[in-house]
Design a protein around this nucleic acid. Structure first.
Lengths: 341, 341
DNA sequence: AATTGGTTCTGAACCGTTACGGTCACTCCA
DNA sequence: TGGAGTGACCGTAACGGTTCAGAACCAATT
């Protein structure tokens, strides 16, 4: 029976024909994939955990690039890609338990996420992306801290000392507003924590008191949030010369807000982003480009690679500082004296 | 055992505690989802068949909107969404057979696609989207023919009689060039066939010999294709007053090409699209808006709705003609005499 | 003391497949 | 003619859960 479908060489053409014929006559729909999976211990699919309103993933270009890369890797391997329904509000870890998959990819979830914990309990290989190193699972990501550090050095070299920061959500609870240094350190999103740490290090070394730098957080990730957050910073600290955003989306929102206020970029205000999405490139944003598609592909390869799975592997992809037209040296007091405000 | 995990009320707390304790001690990782699926005959996931290099789906805004809507419906129902790896070149129908899912959604594949045939053979409910009506499966879509007919009427009322058409691929074979009327009728992509039919009907009724209207096809769906196709039409028929594209992406490409040639839109050339994607709105494109997200959501609801599954259901969503700034009355010969070319 | 009713617990059957080993017929060669 | 060797075919045992019937137990009622 099984042979007739899967191993035509194991039996005579005649028998195969007869088997298939009777199967058809009896209305047999072909081997059941679930039963096969149970027997062979292979599901032929990998699960993707995003822990985010799924629709978010389809609107954020960086997440989308990752998804595309992962999908490509899966397609190459002939493996299905299953999106696990895990909304952040509903703590429905059951979806993780119910998923018939050969492994998991976990993308950018808070490190205290219960879904992540549930994944780690499943006895299948796992690859985490944009997560801190955790015991015994493969990881792929970038060095967010030094990438952001490099960007900061770039601004420092230009002369910026009075800066503000706009960042994405740092934990599962909503906190649309200023962020204490404590909260920065305790951030549950590895990526955001690392980027802030990179900034703190660079500016501290340049003699800036980091605890006095305004850092504003936004829970939702879209340009509207970027606008509101930029407004919040600029209202309180109108003297800042640069606004550093931890994502391009937020930076694009900040650009809108600057325009609304009649601030010229970069003459009156320097704005930077992070990610290197297409829209940012079009806008000439100074930012850090990270290979989002490659991250997805690498995660898929790592998971599907049947090779030696002795100790956890860690892949760090490289980033590139993109010098755009939204960052320039700040006008000094002197200059203002000479040329007027 | 099973009860301890899934039905805590069926046994005493004491026994449950003991069972769970020993399970932990023995390193039992919790119920196996595949075995459970086999027994309960529920996989907790639906399959999505796109039959297109998956990366395409992540770049096309319309497909993306559909995907998002479908993902939302799945998330609401707590169901996984599995992307079936079905590249068009590799005729690997096995992926369809291997997928452990409770149902399929098929989105915009050619009607002679072997993957589609394989899906229909599986004894699970199926919903097709942007497909012709086929026996015994639910369908969701729009009335492409009358939507395009309406757009054509709009142009006809403006006075356009000499028009050109740029359309997406009509079949699985690549044919980057002119399309015979025969090929139009035999098109395997329902959506494209219907849209062309809507145009043909409207213009025929307006006294235009449809067989003389240049229709150019492009296999790849991106702005570069739109540019090249527009160029091809304009090279051969420089006298056309309107270029009708069957998608916004192609129309945006056509806009680029018009600009490159120094043709003003809409003064020198009217350009229209189809879909109503965001980029088109920004560009002021005259187009037809269709509710892509709602299509996905409706497909998901239809598939996951456990209600009466007596006869196949068919959902037609409504479209809206968007009058933008890229369509205007053509300059008549008279006008040209008066105002110069 | 026996019957009844109700709860908790146990065991076996089943879901549909694939892997594996054994049977059987047949050929080939001494 | 007997025996080994080969290849096709078939039967059976898991895979790991869920479900359900019925056993065992306890308490209450007659």
């Amino acid at each position: 029976m099984s042979n007739a479908y899967n191993r035509p060489d194991q039996l005579s053409p005649e028998l195969r024909r007869r088997v298939l014929e009777t199967a058809r006559r009896l209305g047999y729909p072909g081997p059941d994939p679930v039963a096969r999976s149970l027997r062979t211990r292979k599901a032929g699919a990998v699960g993707l955990l995003l822990t985010e309103n799924l629709s978010y993933a389809f609107r954020d270009p960086a997440a989308l690039g990752f998804l595309e890369g992962l999908a490509l890797a899966c397609e190459d391997a002939g493996t299905g890609l299953m999106l696990i329904p895990a909304s952040p509000e509903r703590e429905d870890v059951a979806a993780v338990h119910r998923a018939g998959v050969d492994g998991f990819v976990v993308y950018s979830v808070p490190d205290d996420d219960p879904h992540l914990a549930a994944v780690l309990e499943r006895p299948v290989p796992t690859v985490v992306c944009d997560q801190p190193d955790i015991g015994n699972v493969d990881r792929v990501g970038i060095d967010d801290r030094s990438a952001m550090n490099e960007l900061a050095q770039h601004l420092i070299a230009m002369g910026h000392r009075r800066v503000g920061v706009v960042c994405m959500r740092l934990a599962r609870d909503r906190n649309d507003g200023y962020v204490s240094v404590d909260r920065q350190h305790a951030a549950h999103f590895h990526v955001q924590r690392a980027r802030l740490a990179g900034l703190a290090m660079a500016f501290s070394e340049a003699g800036v008191d980091w605890s006095q730098v305004p850092v504003v957080e936004r829970f939702d990730h879209n340009t509207a949030s970027g606008e509101a957050a930029a407004a919040q910073v600029l209202d309180r600290d109108p003297t800042i010369t640069a606004l550093i955003c931890t994502s391009d989306i937020l930076a694009l929102g900040a650009m809108n807000e600057a325009k609304r206020r009649g601030l010229r970029v970069p003459e009156d205000l320097t704005i930077t982003g992070f990610d290197g999405i297409q829209e940012a490139e079009r806008a000439g944003l100074t930012t850090v480009r990270q290979p989002v598609l490659e991250k997805g592909r690498a995660a898929g390869k790592l998971l599907l690679d049947v090779g030696e799975r002795t100790r956890p592997r860690s892949v760090n992809l490289s980033t590139e500082l993109i010098v755009g037209t939204t960052a320039a040296a700040p006008r000094t007091i002197t200059e203002e004296r000479w040329f007027g405000p």
